[in-house]
Simulated assay, not measured.
Amino acid sequence: MDRFVVSRHDDGRRLDKVIRKKWPSLPLGAMMKAFRKKQVRVDGARAYFDQRLVEGQEVLVPWESAPTDVGAKRTGGHLVTVYRDESLWVVSKPAGLLSQPDRKGGDSVVTRAFLPGSSFQPQAVNRLDRNTSGIMVLALTGESLRDLSSRWRDREMEKVYLALVVGDLPEEGRIDAPLSKDGSSNKVFVDSKGQSSMTLYRRLASGGGLSLCLVTLITGRSHQIRVHMSHIGHPVLGDVKYGDRAINGVKGAKRPMLHAFSVSFPEMSGDLSSLSSKTFRAPIPEDMADMCSKNGIVPDRAFLR
Rank of each mutant, 00 (worst) to 15 (best):
R3A: 15
D10P: 02
D10F: 07
V18C: 11
R20D: 03
K22D: 03
A30F: 05
F35C: 01
R36A: 12
K38P: 00
K38R: 15
G44R: 12
Q51V: 03
V59M: 05
V59K: 01
T68G: 04
V70H: 12
G71K: 13
A72F: 10
K73W: 09
T75Q: 05
G76A: 13
V80N: 10
T81P: 03
V90S: 02
K93C: 13
P94Y: 00
S99K: 05
G105Y: 06
S108G: 10
R112W: 02
A113Q: 08
P116E: 12
P116L: 07
S118Q: 00
S119M: 04
F120P: 03
V125C: 06
M136N: 07
V137L: 13
L138D: 12
L140T: 10
D154R: 15
E156I: 07
E158K: 15
G167N: 04
D168R: 13
G183V: 13
S184I: 11
V190S: 01
S192N: 10
K193G: 14
L200Q: 10
L200N: 15
R203C: 12
S206V: 00
L214D: 12
L217Q: 04
L217C: 06
I218Y: 06
R221F: 10
S230F: 11
G233T: 15
G233P: 08
K241R: 12
Y242A: 01
I247K: 15
N248Q: 14
L258M: 00
V263G: 08
S264N: 01
P266A: 07
E267K: 15
S269N: 13
S273Y: 05
S273R: 14
L275H: 14
S277W: 15
A289N: 01
D290I: 06
S293C: 00
P299K: 08
P299V: 07
F303A: 14
